[in-house]
Computed example of a mutant assay.
Amino acid sequence: MNTNQRLHSLDNLRAIMMWLGIVVHVSVNYMESPAPTPWRDSQTSLLADLLIVFIHAFRMPVFFILAGFFVAMLVARRGIAAMLQQRVRKLVWPFMLFWPVLFIGMALLMAVYAHLNAYGTIGVDFSLIPQIPGRAKVSLLHLWFIYYLFLYCLVYALLLRLSVTVPLGWQEGFARSWKILGMNWWGILLLSLPLAVAGGFYRNGMVIPLGSFLPDIAEFIHSGLFFTFGIFLYRYQSEILENFTRKSWLYLIAGLPVFVLFLKLSKSFGSAESTGYGMQWAMAYLYNGVSWLWSFALIGLFLRYLPGRNRVLTYMADSSYWVYLVHMLGTMGFGILLYHSPFAAIGRMICNILLTTVFCLLSYHLLIRHRFMGRFLNGGTKKTTAGPDAGAIHPSQGAQ
Rank of each mutant, 00 (worst) to 15 (best):
N2A: 08
T3E: 11
S9A: 15
N12A: 00
R14G: 12
S27P: 00
N29Y: 06
S33M: 14
R40G: 11
D41G: 04
I55R: 02
H56K: 13
G68R: 11
L74K: 03
V75Y: 03
R78T: 01
I80H: 01
A81P: 09
Q85E: 12
Q85H: 12
L91D: 00
M106I: 15
M106L: 15
A107C: 08
A107E: 06
L108Y: 14
L108R: 05
A111G: 03
A111H: 00
A111F: 02
A111T: 02
V112F: 04
Y113Q: 13
N117K: 05
V124E: 02
F126T: 13
F126A: 05
P133I: 05
G134Y: 13
R135F: 12
A136S: 09
H142V: 07
W144F: 00
I146P: 01
L149D: 08
L151P: 00
Y152R: 04
Y152T: 03
C153W: 07
V155M: 06
L162W: 14
V166C: 02
V166E: 00
L168P: 15
W170D: 06
Q171A: 01
Q171G: 02
F174I: 15
F174N: 11
L181Y: 13
M183A: 05
M183R: 07
L190T: 04
S192M: 10
A196Q: 10
V197C: 12
A198I: 00
G200Q: 04
Y202T: 02
R203F: 07
G205A: 12
M206D: 14
V207F: 12
P209A: 09
L210G: 06
F213G: 01
L214F: 15
I217H: 10
I217R: 11
F220L: 09
H222Q: 10
G224E: 02
F226V: 06
F226G: 03
F227H: 07
F227Y: 08
G230T: 13
R235S: 10
R235G: 10
R235L: 12
E239Q: 06
R246N: 11
S248Y: 11
P257K: 14
K264W: 09
S271E: 12
A272M: 08
G276Y: 11
Y277R: 10
M279Q: 13
W281S: 09
L286M: 14
N288F: 12
V290D: 05
S291L: 03
S295C: 13
G300I: 13
L301K: 01
F302C: 09
Y305Q: 05
L306N: 11
L306P: 08
N310W: 00
D318A: 11
S319A: 10
H327E: 14
H327C: 08
H327V: 08
L329A: 11
F334H: 02
I336W: 02
L338Y: 03
P342H: 03
P342L: 03
A344C: 04
M349H: 04
C351P: 01
I353Y: 14
L354V: 10
L355P: 12
V358L: 04
F359I: 08
L361H: 10
S363W: 01
S363A: 07
R369W: 07
G374N: 00
R375Y: 11
G379W: 07
A386P: 03
D389I: 15
I393N: 14
S396E: 15
G398N: 14
